[in-house]
């Protein structure tokens, strides 16, 4: 099902503020279709905020974000944050099916079953959310990416909490997605993907600017 995406991203002088702290400023970059951007930086450098801005959840303090994509359809992104959006009282299959139909997948039952196989939760379909380990919760969250093809993947430490074959599964998912021309922007520590663009948040943290009069 290789449906190819035509999506590119252009950031122009992006800046983000949390409370009064400017996390990063003056960030400009461009991503062509099929590229992978790996975010590096210390904790609190703004990696998660950067992903939330691209996901349209957080409002940037300054700068422009241009998604150059063919379809004007608003739903072209997947956001996988630290939190896995798992409901403790619902079973794995129910949650996968909910996300399938919510994200507009045609046959939610079938695609949910397929996705659970891909992420390796097929034999835990009837386990309620509270019965899952951190790794299994992360795998359930990954089913969203598998079921609904979306051009842009925004992943916050996707490999965290996953065991070895879980990580290889995610690597393959990312490789396939890039082959289809999709964009992957992920906060990852030290994973070697070939021809990945590295973005070190440290370059954009503000130098100790003098006392400014402006009110953040």
């Amino acid at each position: 099902m290789a449906n190819s995406f035509t999506i590119a991203l252009k950031l122009d002088d992006l800046a983000a503020v949390r409370g009064y702290r400017t996390l990063f400023e003056g960030m400009s970059l461009a991503l062509d279709p099929g590229s992978l951007l790996e975010l590096r930086g210390l904790n609190g450098a703004g990696k998660s905020t950067f992903l939330r801005i691209l996901a349209g959840l957080t409002r940037p303090a300054a700068g422009k974000i241009d998604w150059l994509c063919a379809s004007e359809d608003h739903a072209f992104r997947h956001f996988l944050g630290h939190l896995d959006a798992i409901k403790p009282q619902e079973t794995v299959r129910q949650q996968a099916m909910f996300w399938a139909s919510f994200l507009g997948v045609a046959d939610s039952r079938h695609s949910a079953r397929e996705a659970l196989k891909v992420v390796g939760l097929a034999n835990r379909a009837d386990v309620p959310g509270r019965g899952l380990s951190a790794g299994q919760r992360r795998r359930l969250a990954l089913t969203r990416l598998v079921m609904a093809p979306r051009a842009v993947w925004l992943l916050d430490e996707p490999l965290a909490a996953l065991d070895a074959d879980g990580q290889t599964m995610v690597r393959d998912l990312i490789k396939d997605h890039r082959k289809q021309g999709g964009l992957v922007i992920a906060a990852m520590h030290g994973e070697g993907f070939e021809n990945a663009q590295i973005l070190d948040m440290g370059e954009f943290t503000p130098r100790q600017s003098a006392v400014t009069d402006e009110v953040a």
């Binding site: 939330r52 996901a55 349209g56 959840l57 359809d73 608003h74 739903a75 072209f76 992104r77 997947h78 956001f79 944050g81 630290h82 939190l83 896995d84 959006a85 798992i86 409901k87 996300w99 919510f102 994200l103 969250a141 969203r144 925004l154």
Partner: peptide, 14 residues
């Protein structure tokens, strides 16, 4: 909000 569902719903364009 606490379990991240709102983030996923918001980012999915709903």
């Amino acid at each position: 909000l606490e379990d991240g569902t709102l983030d996923a719903l918001g980012a999915s364009g709903a």
